[in-house]
Design a protein around this nucleic acid. Structure first.
Length: 438
RNA sequence: UCCGGAGUAGCUCAGCGGUAGAGCGGGUGGCUGUUAACCACUAGGUCGGGGGUUCGAAUCCCUCCUCCGGAGCCA
């Protein structure tokens, strides 16, 4: 590989506008090329942008032409040239080549050509698919969302609190856990950091977790991954409505940040920013009771007590052009740790945030049961082992307080904001029931 | 796990009882402004695996595998 470094300054394409008229060095990969007898066009990408480099025989000579001709799609190269504003160019600039330095000639043809491909093929080549313009844009938006979430909580005095990934017991259901051998005993991969987050809230007042989560659900839908990232704030002395408002503020903060910093990327993936600009407080709130009425009127076959499935979620989330907060579910549908409504014990103090455009649930949360005796009986009712939760019950023995929190699915949020129909493009290497490679 | 759909060239697909096809990508040649460039030529196949029906199967039947979409479950 040729690593001779020319003297012109190395510039990333995202900064190209500052160098109009100057000689610069670009380091990247060949995206595409076109040629004519006495001129060469090289499309170069460097991870931050794409630019057309123009090589004329007078500028780079036979040697330069030979260098260009030796390079195939996704070969790596460095080029030196003069930045020139060019209204016809998609990015507004071209590079007039002076020197072409091949770094590595791709060994054979790159599997992903500029033409159409099926998703199965693209997923098999996910490690290379990530180089495409669209995937790069999605990853950058994902990063902006991650950064926004951290900034949101950090700005409100929350402490990042990392829960363990190896755990000894279930906190949702037992059928969806991945088992691993842990020095002879069974350990499960965490399917939620919430129980640990509650410990953090009692120690630090307000915390958020941010980490991977594992669910062995045999789900084959556009909304499920077996490994996904979840953010779970937990706050002492907060009730359900406080948590719902926190979720609402957070959503608005994230959307605003994406609009401020990732407009170019939204353009690349053809996401209409006007849809995101409508994501403003307040989000409409609808109780489970009222939702059932609405669903019945809309023709759904559902009775009180029934679970709100994918189709029903779609109907409700399509009622508004901003997220909908659905609350007061039947307690029987919810996890053992969820507190019940004092006025109606059949209802749980839980809420979901349903993203608009039929994107469905992106947040689930609520107020936690804080009474020792009630929580013990709930654990038993759910067929769980009380000994496994002794440490969790201790939170209700030593200075128990009302507290609440929620979980935000990162990939579903990325899919929503990017307008993607499927979560598989929202994470670099999605893990699904039929996908462990690459 | 259940219900649908699909596996044919590197990719996207057509062919649906009678000699294996196209576009794109690759290779070679041509062209001084192309931009999913264009033009000409060219290479490229165990038609997902196995079994069966038939003079003859990519095509019809059985079976298995893989993938896709949906349901359940959930973020």
């Amino acid at each position: 590989m040729n690593m001779v470094t020319p003297t012109a300054p190395h510039v990333y394409l995202e900064d190209i506008a500052k160098y109009d008229g100057q000689d610069i060095l670009l380091k990247g990969w060949l995206y595409n090329k076109r040629s004519s007898g006495k001129i060469r066009f090289v499309m170069l990408r460097d991870g931050t942008g794409l630019i057309q480099c123009v090589g004329s025989i007078n500028d780079i000579g036979e040697e330069g032409f030979a260098a260009v001709d030796s390079l195939s799609q996704e070969s790596s190269l460095m080029v030196v040239g003069t930045v020139k504003a060019e209204p016809r160019a998609p990015g507004g600039f071209e590079l007039i080549l002076k020197q072409v330095i091949p770094v590595h000639v791709a060994m054979g043809e790159f599997p992903i050509s500029p033409k159409e491909h099926g998703t199965a093929f693209l997923m098999d080549n996910r490690h290379l698919w990530l180089r495409s313009k669209r995937q790069v844009a999605i990853m950058r938006i994902r990063h902006a969302i991650v950064k926004a979430i951290r900034d949101f909580f950090d700005g409100r005095g929350f402490t990042l609190f990392d829960p363990p990934i190896f755990t000894n017991a279930a906190c949702e259901g037992t059928s969806t856990l991945f088992e691993t051998d842990y020095f002879g005993e069974t350990a499960y991969l965490s399917q939620s950091g919430q129980l640990y987050g509650e410990c953090g809230a009692m120690a630090l007042g307000k915390i958020y977790t941010f980490g991977p989560t594992f669910r062995a659900e045999k789900s084959k839908t556009r909304r499920h991954l077996t490994e996904f990232w979840m953010i779970e704030p937990e706050v002492a002395y907060m009730d359900m409505w406080g948590a719902a408002e926190l979720a609402e503020d957070m959503c608005c903060f994230i959307v605003q940040r994406v609009l401020e910093t990732r407009m170019e990327e939204l353009k690349v993936i053809e996401r209409d920013p006007a849809i995101l600009e409508k994501i403003q407080k307040p989000f409409p709130r609808i109780s489970y009771d009222d939702a059932i009425k609405v669903l019945k009127n809309a023709g759904h076959d559902i009775e009180w007590g029934g679970d709100i499935g994918g189709d029903e979620e779609t109907t409700i989330s399509n009622l508004n052009d901003r997220p909908t907060i659905l609350y007061h579910f039947p307690a029987d549908l919810k996890a053992f740790y969820m507190k019940r409504d004092a006025g109606n014990p059949k209802l749980a103090l839980g809420f979901d945030v349903l993203a608009p455009e039929g994107k469905g649930e992106v947040i689930g949360g609520g107020q936690r049961e804080d009474d020792y005796d009630v929580l013990v009986s709930r654990i038993k009712e759910h067929g769980l082992n009380v000994e496994d939760f002794e440490w969790f019950l201790d939170l209700r023995k030593y200075g128990s307080v009302p507290h609440a929190g929620y979980g935000l699915g990162l990939e579903r949020t990325v899919a929503w904001l990017c307008g993607l129909p499927h979560v598989r493009e929202t994470i670099p290497f999605p893990r699904m029931i039929s996908r462990l490679k690459p």
